[in-house]
Amino acid sequence: MNKKRTDFAQKLISAPYIVWSAIFIIVPLLMVAYYAFTDKSGAFTLDNISGLSRYAKTFGMSLLYAAEATVISLIIAYPLAYFMSNMKAGAQRMMSMLIMLPMWMNFLIRTYSWITILAKTGIINTLLSKIGIGPVQLINTPGAVVLGMVYNYLPYMVLPIYTVMVKIDKSLLEAADDLGSSPISRLRRVIFPMTVPGIISGITMVFVPSVSTFYISQKLGGGKTMLIGDVIEMQFQSSYNYNLGAAISLVLMVLILISLAVMNRFDDSEEGGILI
């Protein structure tokens, strides 16, 4: 009796969230699916999907660039999080602030500022020419695109790893020392395995936006590196082919889900649920 009432109360409390997720998550997904499997007249068709093999290379490149950006972010973020977690409390707060600071600035402006840094007449090339190295092609290269992704999404890699790392009980590190671990072996046997959930969230939060970005590739890739995000954007903005756009989005989503599922297999700990 009593239990029933709490159940009901709980349902009542969660009702707004259920409505919210229905309107803003389920309905859009259904709409994407609807457009993907219909033609302009609204009749059912598989042509949108079957025609996607044209874009196989673009899909592949998007996944590759996103993977590169994710790996580079991880390589930068992990040591950074490690050193941060060993700082004094005040310094730790300061560092988290500094890492989050760029996120307070508009994403477009952040990306735009890289153009002025990387351009032929940009800051780097000006400096290089001063020491006699001719202008180097920096902007409009795949490297610039990956750089843009790393720059924009790095905080999303650092913060989850850092959060998991500071929560490791110091006595576990002492226990590892006590049992004879050198600092390296301690990192390998205790700290790394215990931060896997943070690494997985970080990878997810960098990989997913990187794989679907279009703005970064347009601005820093100069249209030469066409990513799948650009193709989708084009369908909606200039070609007005919603059906094709939806089909690409749907396939991209499936690819992302597969990537995440594969990655999740590496995390056999119970906290693996963080992802979903």
């Binding site: 576990l172 226990a175 590892a176 006590d178 049992l179 205790v190 395995p193 215990m194």
Partner: peptide, 29 residues
């Protein structure tokens, strides 16, 4: 440093490794 000392400790709150099972905890050293 601690890892080079010939002593082992049983900590006040055990400090067992949560990511390892019983076997691996004992096998750690």
């Amino acid at each position: 440093p601690p890892h080079k000392r010939q002593v082992n400790t049983i900590f006040q709150r055990y400090a067992l490794f949560p990511h390892l099972n019983v076997f691996e905890n004992i096998a750690f050293g």
